[in-house]
Simulated assay, not measured.
Amino acid sequence: MADPANDFELTPVDRAIERLRAIYRNWTRDRSVAQMRSDWDAAFAGCPASVQCRQVSAGGVDAEWIAPPGAPHDKAILYCHGGGFRIGSVASHRDLIARLAEAAGCRVLAINYRLAPEHRFPAALNDAQTAYRYLRDQGLRPAEIAFAGDSAGGNLVLGAM
């Protein structure tokens, strides 16, 4: 295994695993959900310089446009982050979302849907549907909107579709 002290030797996957290990070492039964969320966001937050990140309200849902240079405005991806419906956010998934935006050559609307346990089902699903309506209100047709998500966000995408 790579030595974390020699970060230049670590692959992106190695760095992610090291971050996860550092987070989980600190999580005990006494750790609050709010602290777990903060830990997760701090470990993975960042916005690559290659994309533009702009916060918006998508029909009342906290969201962020993440777009590579020259991305067309007549297409969009609606992205729902993972995290077991309890943790995760646009901040913790921004790098992944930015890579998706660059690979697709398309802007991404990533949402911070409401999380459990404070917000029970169907709050997250309602937020995803509200964000979809927001995209439609922006003039995008259904054929111009792709859905994407990871883990719990993938589940949310299927439910929203």
Results as ranks from 00 to 15, higher is better:
46 G>K: 14
44 F>W: 14
61 V>E: 09
124 A>Y: 01
94 R>C: 15
97 I>L: 07
132 Y>P: 04
156 L>V: 10
161 M>N: 11
94 R>F: 14
70 G>S: 00
116 A>P: 06
75 K>M: 04
144 E>S: 13
145 I>D: 10
22 A>Y: 02
114 R>T: 03
101 A>Q: 06
14 D>E: 13
149 G>T: 05
59 G>K: 01
30 D>M: 11
146 A>D: 07
87 I>K: 02
36 M>T: 15
44 F>E: 14
55 Q>Y: 10
97 I>N: 09
100 L>I: 08
49 A>L: 04
41 D>Y: 15
41 D>I: 13
157 V>I: 14
4 P>M: 05
3 D>W: 03
119 H>E: 11
58 A>C: 07
155 N>F: 06
55 Q>L: 07
55 Q>K: 12
77 I>L: 01
7 D>P: 05
71 A>H: 00
149 G>P: 06
43 A>N: 10
13 V>S: 04
14 D>A: 13
120 R>D: 15
142 P>F: 12
24 Y>T: 15
131 A>K: 01
140 L>C: 08
158 L>R: 10
140 L>I: 08
85 F>W: 01
64 E>R: 15
122 P>V: 04
23 I>S: 10
145 I>L: 06
140 L>G: 09
124 A>D: 10
148 A>D: 09
133 R>I: 03
59 G>C: 06
155 N>H: 12
51 V>D: 03
18 E>Y: 04
116 A>Q: 12
96 L>K: 00
22 A>D: 06
8 F>D: 12
89 S>V: 12
108 V>I: 09
70 G>M: 03
159 G>A: 02
124 A>R: 05
137 D>Y: 01
130 T>W: 07
67 A>L: 03
105 G>E: 07
12 P>H: 10
110 A>V: 06
63 A>F: 01
8 F>M: 04
44 F>L: 15
55 Q>V: 13
72 P>W: 00
158 L>Y: 12
126 N>K: 07
122 P>S: 03
96 L>C: 08
23 I>D: 09
137 D>H: 11
3 D>L: 06
32 S>C: 08
31 R>C: 15
128 A>M: 03
139 G>W: 09
146 A>I: 04
45 A>I: 14
47 C>D: 15
28 T>Y: 02
114 R>K: 02
21 R>M: 10
128 A>H: 09
125 L>T: 08
38 S>P: 04
134 Y>C: 03
132 Y>I: 11
148 A>Y: 05
115 L>N: 00
56 V>L: 11
126 N>M: 02
47 C>G: 11
42 A>L: 12
49 A>K: 12
31 R>M: 14
133 R>V: 00
89 S>W: 11
24 Y>Q: 14
156 L>K: 08
154 G>P: 02
97 I>M: 06
80 C>T: 03
2 A>G: 00
16 A>G: 00
6 N>E: 07
116 A>G: 02
96 L>V: 12
77 I>C: 07
118 E>C: 12
37 R>F: 00
62 D>F: 01
137 D>M: 10
107 R>P: 05
113 Y>C: 05
56 V>R: 09
47 C>N: 11
48 P>L: 01
119 H>T: 11
17 I>M: 00
23 I>L: 08
